[in-house]
């Protein structure tokens, strides 16, 4: 870990302005991911701006009947909120499926959205990784590499890392909106589908946020109702990243939304796939995973995604 300086921000706009002022500054919330990466010198900020105490820890109701979640609300508090449990059960279930109780107590809403991939080649500084060291190559795409956990769609020839969040998958199914403040004090709303960007030729660029821009809230629309479920498939019962996870919102008429985790560089959802929901899991996945380019080791995720959705739709 490199030496760094540290300050506590006063308010969101000041935090964003400070972050833009100091090159290589980073925000720190719970620190559950950032500090691990700093110890390995995968992240090497020279300055940390602590944003835990700038008034972003409340969950309030919006005029539209939805919820506005402060960026520093912990994963535990968000999943346990009675309004979330009642009206957005897919979100509660997704959060509870992630990490461990200790980590969820510390991890924040914005930090969860911005966590980095768990690709083993990203984590070993001695290995090539275009995300960590642009231009160094992709260790996971070499013949003989280990890629079982990695992405099957939305990836590129430079990077097949996945976004590891469970929470974000549920938020994607719920059409959440991210609110930010920019370094010049302006606020901005970004649909969650636009927050994470695909790797293309620049896998180091993971979000649509501009330098210094700070996530302040995540807004959930008015409750959408329906049956909501989150099924996370993994090799052990707890404390493992998803092989595949499925967030499902299904209305009485059979319509709804399907988002996937564990398969792509971002929570993965397509409107044309949602439209196939009344036609069953095979029809949905034909659209949702169309254009997939898995490796030999992770091609099973395509079958697994379809069978997981079939389980949730109780297809016989």
């Amino acid at each position: 870990m490199r030496s760094f300086s540290y300050e506590r921000a006063v308010d969101p706009a000041q935090a964003a302005a400070r972050a833009a002022e100091i090159p290589d500054a980073k925000f720190i919330g719970g620190g559950t991911n950032l500090l691990d990466l700093m110890k390995l010198e995968i992240e090497t900020p020279i300055h940390l701006i602590d944003v835990r105490d700038i008034g972003l820890t409340e969950i309030t109701e919006t005029e539209e009947g939805g919820l506005r979640i402060g960026a520093q609300v912990t994963n535990t508090d968000l999943s346990a909120d009675s309004r979330v449990r009642r009206d957005y059960p897919v979100l509660t279930r997704a959060i509870a499926a992630g990490a461990s109780g200790q980590i969820r107590n510390k991890a924040t809403t914005a930090g969860n959205l911005l966590q980095r991939t768990r690709c083993p080649y990203f984590y070993d500084p001695a290995q090539p990784c275009n995300k960590r060291a642009p231009g160094s190559g992709c260790g996971a795409l070499t013949e003989g590499a280990f890629s079982r956990q990695l992405g099957v769609i939305g990836t590129s020839e430079t990077c097949i890392a996945t976004h590891p969040s469970d929470m974000a998958v549920a938020m994607r199914a719920l059409d959440a909106v991210v609110e930010t403040v920019t370094p010049n004090g302006m606020t901005r709303r970004i649909a969650i589908e636009d927050l994470h960007v695909l790797p293309g030729q620049t896998p180091e660029q993971e979000t649509a946020l501009m330098p210094g821009e700070l996530i302040t809230h995540v807004v959930l629309p008015a409750p959408v109702g329906g049956q909501q479920a989150y099924h996370k498939v993994r090799d052990r019962s707890s404390y493992a990243f998803a092989l595949v996870s499925v967030a499902l919102i299904q209305q009485a008429d059979g319509t709804g939304a399907v988002a996937l985790g564990g398969v792509a560089p971002k929570p993965w959802r397509r409107a044309e796939a949602d439209a196939e929901l009344p036609n069953g899991s095979r029809a949905v996945m034909a659209r949702l995973l169309e254009g997939a380019s898995p490796t030999e080791e992770n091609a099973f995720k395509l079958t697994l995604a379809e069978r997981t959705l079939a389980a949730m739709l109780k297809e016989g």
């Binding site: 083993p120 984590y123 290995q127 070499t142 003989g144 280990f146």
Partner: peptide
Amino acid sequence: IDTARGFFPAH
């Protein structure tokens, strides 16, 4: 095993 580089990637 990463058979290209001769190591165990799980860290």
